[in-house]
Amino acid sequence: MKIQDHAFAADLQNWINEHLSPYTPTSKAEKLVSIHSLVRELAQSNLLTRGWPAPYGDNDIRKQLYLHFSLARQALGAVGLCLASHIDIGTRGLLDKGSPELIDKWLPKALTGDAIFSLAMTEPDAGSDLQGIQFTANKSEEGWILNGVKRGITNLPFADAALVLARTNPSRSPFSYSLFLVPIETAGITREQAVPTLAYHGCLGGISAKDAVIPLDNLVGPFGAGLMLLMKHLETERLFVSARMLGISTYLIEELILHTRNSPQCALQADNVARLKMQLMAFEAYFETCVNAFEEGELSAKDSAALKYMGSSLLKSASNTLADYSGAQGYLRGTPAIRFTTEAMGLALAGGSEEIMLSIIGNTL
Rank of each mutant, 00 (worst) to 15 (best):
M1G: 11
H6G: 08
F8I: 10
N17M: 06
N17A: 14
P22C: 08
P25F: 05
T26L: 00
L32Q: 06
R40T: 02
E41S: 15
N46A: 08
L47D: 04
G51A: 02
D58K: 15
I61E: 07
L65V: 09
H68P: 04
S70N: 06
L76K: 06
G80E: 06
R92V: 04
L94E: 03
L95H: 05
L95A: 15
K105H: 14
W106T: 06
T112W: 05
D114I: 01
I116V: 15
L119Y: 04
A120R: 03
S128G: 14
L130A: 04
Q134D: 10
Q134A: 11
Q134V: 10
A137V: 05
A137F: 08
E141Y: 05
T154M: 03
D160C: 07
A161D: 02
L165F: 13
P170S: 11
P174Q: 06
P174L: 07
S178T: 07
L179R: 08
V182L: 11
T186S: 13
A187E: 11
E192S: 11
V195D: 04
P196K: 02
L198E: 12
H201I: 03
G202T: 05
G206V: 05
I207E: 01
L216N: 14
G224S: 14
L230R: 07
H233D: 09
E235A: 08
A243M: 05
A243S: 15
S249W: 01
T250C: 01
E254H: 02
P264A: 12
N272Y: 14
V273L: 12
A274N: 15
A282D: 14
Y286K: 13
F287K: 03
V291H: 04
N292W: 07
N292P: 03
G297V: 09
G297Q: 07
L299I: 01
S304F: 07
A305M: 06
M310A: 06
G311M: 01
K316T: 09
N320G: 02
N320W: 05
T321G: 00
T321Y: 04
L347C: 08
A348T: 09
L349D: 13
G352H: 08
S353G: 09
E354Q: 10
M357Q: 12
